[in-house]
Amino acid sequence: MTATAMTTTAESLPGSARPRARRRPRAVRLLTRAPVNAVLAAVALLWLVPSFGLLVTSFRPTKDYFASGWWRALLHPATLTVSNYRHVLQTGGIKDALFTTALITVPATVLVVVVASLAAYALVFLRWPGRDAVFVALVALMVVPLQMALIPVATLYGHLGLFGTVAGVVLFHTAFGLPFAIFLMRNFYTGIPKDLLEAARIDGAGDLMMFLRIVLPLGRPALASLGIFQFLWVWNDLLVSLVFLGGARHVPITVAIFSQLRQFGPNIDLISSASFLSMIVPLIIFFSFQRYFVRGVLAGAVK
């Protein structure tokens, strides 16, 4: 689907330099560019201010939140304090929730990557009846809303004793991550020259060996994109955990924050600092793996 084109072309985030067709005199260029620069600077500011507001708010006592806007604190940096964070991290609930989020996200990511790579191998390099039909079905499954599965899976988990467990959430995320993941990996694998696998076959490799020694190492860029995409998808999820872990003792960070939301004002210290904590990992990933991240998100936005 849409992802095919995007995975290949859309790497433009890290400043794609392209040749300028014609050069006008420097003064003219500056003059015509000034408004554009001004407009985009304003836009950039508009895009930064909200997140920055949360960041500053998370360093202010609750009473300050009621007294004045966060921007006032910039004039009085002394009023900023880390006590919210200290409080949040010491009392355990949020720390525990961050840990639970990681406990869900890491296995769900690894599982999707492994299972999808295997399946994509079968779809590209193995010949079996019904292969094309299965691929079309996967494309269809890509847009099935996960709401379609919540109730029966909840019932199923009830029978299996998986309801309210991290394992249940992990499996759900894995399953719903698969159609897109397989699609992405398949598209990447079709770009691997068939010669390589034939050479390996003649060299004496079986399918498992070809998968492990040839396809998997060559698929690393796609695996990275997929892994990052899936990681963020799961890390940022609210709905699935809300349904399967709603009343559980250990909930992920999104659910933990959600449970504080009724008292938005009074709990702003906790909500703002916890929210920011929940954003740190995604932001680190974003800034360190921008390329893979953009590719993954672009390819995956069709979900």
Partner: peptide, 14 residues
């Protein structure tokens, strides 16, 4: 292929 005891050189070298 692996039981045929042959080696192949591909056009693309592979």
């Amino acid at each position: 292929p692996k039981q045929r005891d042959i080696a192949m050189v591909f056009q693309s070298y592979a």
